[in-house]
Design a protein around this nucleic acid. Structure first.
Length: 941
DNA sequence: TACATCACG
DNA sequence: GACGTACGTGATGTAC
């Protein structure tokens, strides 16, 4: 960054004024003139000037309420109240204060301050100058660009393209298009009814701009949206003109006159004295008689580097380095130089390129390294020839020159395994699985990469629930840079080529950039872990989970494919029969798998009662609806439910699972995602082994197909009532604590207490109700929700909830505390300190906020439970090893761990597993794990 | 690709 | 007085 690059600071005066006025209690001068806004403004401006410097600076004001926008649209800002009378006399004094600092005041009749800001920003940046606009007004976000940024005066946070994107879902140049659609109630910009920020952003992303969208409005699929766009097209155009700032507004003062300069001697202190602002004189170092505070200590506006310039690029030149060009390493000597440089640096970002997203099958194609921002390389290892044109006369293309795989890996291995060189990866589990897999015939490497840091997990530890943690997203968000995408490199659809066929130049640009981005993210995010209070979560839990999950994924679980096929045949036959019955009952054949067709038959043709339409206008036919109809004595719904159950099990589990069976070992290997959920849980994909059926008899058959290896048994260990234990712990409920301490049935205890039934005389129905409400509580349930689940009236449900809270007042207090915590901080903390962000908690949309509040209530319980089992998993391998046991941990299903145990070690393993799981956290209630074992997963329960 | 549905905790 | 109504996931089939 060039230190003396021209830098214009434009302060949005109105923002300062209103903030000052509303933040401070009334204050008056001895002569009775109100001055609270003047005082606040002067303090804020003085404070800003002592901390920031630019080459040019001005404060921009609104001239009057009437502007050209009122002639476009009379209602523009019409609902804004007149400024309060106490504020009016302060406007002139505020301009005086600005001038006393030696700062220019800008205003112009008929234009808003925002237009002048736009005009000066345009003029200044056109000459290559940098512009900082001090304001948090979202209407100014349209001005953000390579040379123009906003600075939020409250949070002292720069607002650049990623922040704008976060707010509007589009890049700054498209902000007005979005605003034109979404409107703005605070400014009375009408927009298009029914279209909010989300929809607007989506439409603009799709169509590019308002006019293109309006031109294609007739083709919009959603009927309501289409109608709105057609009917309110003109209103949208007007809205666009209202929000579009006029960057061609005349400049009331030449740019040169905005040059930053020290205040005239005495003028500032004179002003402060006149207003009676003694504390400000002191704060600004102007209160001395010359003895302690000579004039030279007055604010200087020139040399001290702006906070903007040091806030992030304190690390400086480095982090401003361009993304590329990067080096392609194709000879051993060059590779050895890179390896030596990495070891000398002590930290290196590493990324692997492969031919598959599935780590257990992926073949290594290349490795990239980054040692400093902008300094990165790509080492191709298994690139083949470019795809030919298919012309038979063409000479066979040759593979590009590259270091032989074995030699390259031998050169890399010592560095990758060097305990003194930290390897930084994004989603390290993947790369570690690829590099760690020993393979015959040259492919992959058997390298045990250590130690590692993982930027995905660093981000997740701090920002779970706030946004995704993919590299591209983090890069745009934190670095303001969109890396090249995989699709751009390999193409998409039919034209897609394997990465190994991508030409080296392109592969290097992509692969080295990913390593570069990873390194830059690490430099930015790693220090934040400590300040954000997320260091322990990352170091003690997330980072240690990498190796644990790697082992589990590699182990996989044995599935009996023959049994699976038998189940499939059986289901098929039964489905055929059911389908015939359904068609007869319906009076005609139709596709039973189509909810749309089913809805039409049930509600349009058969005219059954109780139909409700979903958001797309189709009849709802889910299990709850069908159950209801069935209870009214209709045969069709029940038959459909049965068919659906078989259909689900067959397609998702019988066929889906069979397709995932690895023929090499007869096992299925899931991929645990570590950074997906907003609560700290894992998730499982390809296949999802966390939702294998168990609740129905047919489901149990599927689970029986998960079997132990010969000579082994499966051991399942479930945490008992873990979320309710956390409830008893967090809300500190004496009677629930006692119940757990005595190993009582918690739902019976609850039933006895809220329904006032003698202990021991609780019947099944009372227990069922208590169980429903116990779970409902940790989901933030309402009376309505409870009524629906229990099939009782809302009044009765409310009575039960009232009785519950009367019995357990600590629980209600805890629910309120969690909502409050989320509202104030934007996040809640689990009992172990994991930070979980609650999206939408500040939303003005009642429904959205309601959802967020329930999520805030649930998050500490779900997240706390996730934390407990993760900690147990992290401790498990060593505990087993120390006990001389060979059991393998195979799966985690949120509150359950599944192990494969050599038959002779069952007792000892059970003991060790139980001990680890129950001792991993000290709560106000004991933790309990329940164990079972058998030849298959169903039996182990 | 959106939606509805349903498998699990 | 209306609103919408229990938390968190992933996979599948239909319809567009």
């Amino acid at each position: 960054m060039v230190a003396d690059q021209p830098h214009l600071i434009l302060v949005d005066g109105s923002g300062y004024i209103f903030r000052a006025f509303h933040a401070l209690p009334p204050m008056t001068r001895p002569d009775g003139v109100p001055v609270n806004a003047v005082f606040g403004f002067t303090g804020m401006l003085g404070n800003f000037l002592t901390r920031h410097a630019g080459s040019h600076i001005a404060v921009v004001f609104d001239h009057s309420r009437n502007t050209f926008r009122n002639t476009i649209y009379a209602d523009y800002k019409a609902h804004r109240p007149e400024p309060p009378p106490e504020l009016v006399p302060q406007f002139a004094l505020i301009r005086e204060a600005t001038a006393a600092f030696g700062v220019a005041c800008l205003e112009l009749e008929n234009f808003e301050a925002d237009d002048l800001i736009a005009a000066y920003a345009k003029a200044f940046s056109a000459e290559g100058g940098k512009v900082t606009i001090v304001s948090s007004d979202k209407d100014l976000m349209q001005l953000v660009g390579p040379l123009v940024q906003l600075l939020d005066p409250i949070k002292q946070k720069p607002i650049r393209e990623p922040e704008v994107f976060e707010k509007f879902g589009v890049t700054p140049d498209k902000v007005v298009e979005v605003q034109a659609l979404a409107g703005d109630s605070t400014d009375n910009v009408p927009g298009v009814p029914g279209i909010g920020l989300k929809t607007a952003a989506q439409l603009i992303q799709e169509y590019g701009d308002l006019e293109t969208l309006l031109a294609s409005a007739e083709q919009i699929k959603q009927p309501k949206r289409r109608e709105s766009l057609v009917n309110f097209a003109e209103q949208a155009r007007i809205s666009r003109r209202l929000v579009q700032l006029d960057a061609d507004a005349p400049l009331p003062a030449p740019i040169d006159s905005l040059l930053a300069r020290a205040p005239e001697p005495g003028r500032l202190s004179g002003f402060l004295r006149d207003q009676g602002f003694r504390s400000l004189q002191h704060r600004l170092g102007l209160d001395g008689d010359g003895a302690t505070a000579p004039p030279t200590s007055a604010p200087r506006f020139a040399p001290p580097p702006a906070i903007l310039m040091k806030a992030e690029p304190a690390a400086t030149l480095d982090d401003a380095a361009p993304f590329g060009p990067y080096e392609t390493v194709t000879d051993l000597a060059t590779l050895e130089r890179w390896v030596a440089e990495a070891q000398a640096a002590g930290t290196v970002a590493v990324d692997t390129e492969t031919d598959s997203l599935d780590a257990l099958h992926a073949k290594l194609v290349g490795v990239s390294l980054a040692i400093a921002p902008g300094r990165a390389c790509y080492i191709p290892l298994a690139h083949g020839p470019k795809p030919g044109t298919g012309d038979m006369l063409e000479a066979a293309p040759e593979a590009p020159a590259q270091i032989p795989l074995r030699e390259a890996l031998s050169a890399l291995q010592p560095m990758l395994e060097d305990p003194g060189t930290l390897k930084i990866l994004h989603n390290a589990k993947y790369d570690l699985e690829v590099l760690g897999r020993p393979q015959a015939e040259g492919a992959n490497s058997g390298i045990d990469v250590s130690p590692v840091d993982d930027t995905m997990l660093i981000s997740y530890s701090m920002d779970a629930g706030r946004h995704g943690h993919g590299m591209d997203e983090l890069s745009l968000r934190h670095l303001g840079h969109s890396p090249m995408t995989y699709d751009q490199v390999t193409g998409t659809g039919r034209a897609r080529i394997p990465f190994a066929q991508v030409e080296l130049e392109k592969a290097t640009a992509y692969a080295a950039e990913d390593a570069d981005v990873t390194l830059r993210l690490w430099r930015l995010l790693k220090p934040r872990l400590r300040t954000d209070g997320a260091l322990a979560t990352y170091e003690q839990v997330e980072r240690r989970m990498i190796g644990v999950l790697k082992e589990m994924e590699e182990a996989g679980i044995r599935v009996d494919g023959v049994e699976l096929a038998r189940i499939g045949e059986d289901f098929s036959g039964r489905m055929t029969t059911l389908e015939q019955q359904i068609h007869e009952l319906a009076g005609k054949p139709f596709n039973v798998g189509s909810p749309k067709q089913l809805g039409e038959i049930l509600f349009d043709e058969m005219k059954l009662p109780g139909g409700k339409r979903g958001k797309a206008g189709a009849w709802g036919t889910d299990a709850a609806v069908l159950e209801d109809l069935s209870a009214r004595g209709h045969a069709l719904p029940k038959t459909v439910m049965h068919w659906r159950q078989l259909s689900k099990l067959k397609s998702t589990y019988v066929e889906g699972l069979a397709a995932q069976l690895d023929p090499r070992d007869g096992r299925v290997h899931t991929d645990f995602s570590m950074a997906i959920t907003s609560t700290g849980r894992l998730s499982s994909t390809e296949p999802n082994l966390q939702n294998i059926p168990i609740r129905s008899e047919e489901g149990v058959r599927i689970r029986r197909a998960f079997v132990a290896s010969p000579g082994h048994v499966l051991l399942a260990a479930d945490y008992s009532q873990i979320e309710l234990r956390l409830l008893a712990h967090l809300a500190d409920v004496p009677s629930l604590r006692e119940a757990f301490a005595n190993d009582e049935d918690i739902h019976s205890r609850t039933a006895s207490e809220i329904f006032k039934i003698e202990p021991g005389k609780v019947d099944r129905e009372a227990r069922r109700r208590a169980k429903t409400i116990n779970f409902g509580i940790i989901y933030g349930m309402s009376a309505f929700g409870l009524a629906a689940r229990l099939g009782i009236g809302a009044g009765e449900a409310k009575g039960i909830i009232d009785a519950y809270f009367a019995q357990y007042p600590g629980i209600r207090a805890e629910m309120e505390r969690l909502k409050e915590e989320a509202r104030i901080n934007g996040f809640v903390l689990t009992p172990f300190g994991r930070k979980l962000w609650i999206d939408g908690i500040a939303s003005k949309d009642m429904s959205r906020r309601g959802n967020a509040e329930r999520a805030a209530i649930n998050a500490p319980f779900q997240g706390g439970a996730a934390e407990i089992i993760k900690r147990a998993m992290v401790r498990m391998p060593k505990a087993l090893r120390d006990a001389g046991l060979d059991a393998k941990m195979l799966l985690q299903v949120h509150d359950e761990l599944l192990f494969e145990v050599p038959q002779g070690q069952l007792t000892a393993t059970s003991q060790a597993v139980k001990e680890v799981m129950e001792s991993v956290a000290e709560l106000r209630v004991p933790l309990r794990a329940e164990l079972g074992h058998g030849g298959n997963w169903a039996e182990a329960h």
